[in-house]
Write a protein that binds this DNA or RNA. Structure first.
Length: 531
RNA sequence: GCCCUCGUAGUUCAAUGGAUAGAACGGCGCUCUUCUAAGGCGCAUAUGUAGGUCCGAUUCCUGCCGAGGGCACCA
């Protein structure tokens, strides 16, 4: 809200296409928002007025101050500072007004409203276009049904789930999808692994081992895959990860002859060529010399289905780090289909190292030595597991310390945040906020800091909508919990000697509680009312 | 050998090219006869290395060192 408005007003004054920042400075002395526009502008034009960044900043300050009635309401003052920054200080009236609008809203997001002030749609893509109606397909986990989900699948799983939550919260039409590789070589290997475990055929290096294979005896490959898929679904329910579509490679592509159709389509486009008896698209094989199709061809058919048949505007694929080499091929593939490659967004989740007893636990799905998602959840709980995975940026090679998650569970940040929520509930049990609180009574630094923090959720959501960096949620909600706790320490909420102030503070606590719960809900983490 | 990701405090991680590089855990010292002490306050400690671009680099580019992962007519 504030950030977008400041940006809009500045844009009116500068040449079109000028790239500048409006951000929250770390140091509060630098205002609530700050912009580097003077630095950028001084270089581009020395005019008006001729001079360096500082002069430009002074000019911007004066101009914004007098020409922007909209800003006049929300900005108390503008300062030019440092090497040429423009610092904006939000007026208390504006904070209070927005908090009061915010307080009247329900606890859940409404798709129509988006997040933030009611009636205000989230603007995205930085160019201000309203794109809330975009259809987005988000495909994640998609582990082969050749074994149970591992804890590493949890990382992409929780991340994808939270990202999907955020995108739906701003009104995107989100489809959560799990692609089931129930055709091809892996399934064949699964069948042979069972036979080998039964001693019917000799064991080989590439076959799956592990205890779970033994439990599948007597089953055909297809039966085993179906049974494993069922287990995967149960694990996902336990993890609280929801899917809208379970897309079977076998049923939706192979059985429907889609591979042949995509081949014909690509042939017509003349993008395929023959080499050494195989058929290629760029430097990847689509039909092997033995006439079998490759996984890549199936993936082309799958993405054709996503973009052309089901008409998704954006497809987000969340893959493990071991697939990074596949990105370029896939991008070229969708381009060959006739889809702008930017519509395919691939997020790579780096590998997770599991640390137990101070040592790395080596895992390998094929050898059957791995920690399953079920085991992880049983060990540390869903909330802690979600928190730790969501806390990290996708391209961080993260360590997951089991002992830390268990032993120090009381000091886990997730409990700190949940505790803040429980504490706010406890206060609200003792005093109910009335309808008419005079929020202008809130003027202590701790109160204002808390209001600002609450109103920031809107911007966090907006940022995630732009760049899919869902790990911002954990950082934000932790800061919110800290800001609230700080307020709690300094400001007595229920004060029998001052009923007006009590009402105002109760309204603030109520807004905090809602915001904590909303954010935790986006992350799929419980917000307990008592702890 | 080629490609991708990463290298920040004792540890695990933050930081759209911006101002004094933030947290948490661990360490040390304080702190409650007010609504949840699972709390609060204070202190110490960091950008692997050598260059380059820029008014400004943890961020972009190049070399080197180190860690992980990919380099199949597997999926």
């Amino acid at each position: 809200m504030f950030r977008a408005q400041i940006r809009e007003e500045i844009e009116k004054l500068v040449p079109k296409g000028t790239v500048f920042s409006v951000e929250r400075p770390e140091n509060s002395e630098h205002g609530d928002y700050s912009s580097n526009i003077a630095l950028v502008l001084a270089k581009k034009i020395g005019n008006p007025p001729a001079g360096g960044p500082k002069e430009v900043a002074e000019w911007m300050k004066a101009t914004l101050g007098s020409r922007a009635p909209k800003l006049g309401k929300i900005i108390e003052r503008i300062e030019s500072a440092g090497p040429g920054f423009l610092n904006f200080f939000i007026a208390r009236e504006a904070l209070v007004e927005n908090l009061s609008i915010f307080s009247r809203r329900g606890e859940r997001f409404s798709e129509r409203e988006g997040v933030g002030a009611p009636g205000e749609r989230v603007k995205t893509e930085r160019n201000g276009k309203r794109e809330t109606s975009k259809k987005i397909n988000i495909e994640f986990i998609s582990a082969n049904p050749t074994g149970p989900l591992t804890m590493a699948n949890g990382r992409g799983g929780f991340y994808g789930d939270a990202l999907a939550n955020v995108l739906s919260a701003v009104g995107r039409k989100v489809t959560r999808e799990y692609y089931i590789n129930d055709a091809g070589n892996q399934i064949k290997l699964l069948g042979e692994s069972i036979l080998a475990a039964e001693g019917k055929i000799p064991a080989r290096e590439e076959l799956y081992k592990g205890e779970y294979i033994k439990k599948l005896k007597e089953k055909t490959a297809a039966q085993a895959a179906a049974s494993l898929l069922k287990e995967i679904k149960v694990s996902l329910i336990k993890a609280g990860i929801k899917f809208d579509v379970w897309y079977s490679e076998d049923k939706n592509l192979h059985k429907k002859n889609e591979l042949k159709k995509i081949l014909t389509f690509l042939n017509k486009k003349k993008v395929l060529h023959e080499k050494e008896g195989a058929l290629w698209l760029a430097d990847a094989v689509v039909i092997k010399s033995n006439k079998e199709s490759t996984y890549f061809l199936a993936d082309l058919a799958y993405h054709y289905d996503k973009f052309m048949k089901r008409k998704f505007d954006i497809a987000i694929d969340i893959w493990g780090a071991d697939h990074h080499g596949y990105i370029e091929r896939m991008k070229k593939g969708v381009e060959a289909i006739g889809v702008e490659p930017a519509r395919l967004q691939i997020i790579i989740m780096q590998l997770v190292r599991l640390i137990s007893g101070g040592k790395e636990v080596k895992m390998s799905k094929r050898s059957g030595e791995f920690v399953t998602l079920d085991e992880l959840l049983k060990e540390v709980g869903v909330d802690a597991a979600r928190w730790f995975f969501l806390e990290r940026s996708p391209n961080t090679h993260m360590d997951f310390d089991m002992d830390l998650a268990k032993e120090r569970s009381k000091k886990n940040p997730v409990y700190y945040v949940q505790y803040a929520h429980a504490r706010s509930c406890s206060i609200l049990r003792k005093g109910k906020p009335g309808k008419k609180a005079d929020l202008m009574l809130l003027d202590k630094p701790e109160e204002l800091a808390l209001i600002k923090k609450i109103l920031q959720l809107h911007e966090i959501i907006e940022d995630i909508t732009d760049d899919y960096q869902a790990h911002r949620l954990t950082k934000y909600v932790y800061e919110l919990a800290q800001t609230f706790t700080n307020f709690y320490e300094k400001c007595l909420v229920i004060d029998t000697k001052n009923k007006e102030l009590t009402q105002a503070r109760l309204a603030l606590v109520s807004a905090t509680k809602k915001t904590l719960k909303q954010t935790l809900t986006l992350m799929g983490i419980a917000a307990p009312e008592k702890m």
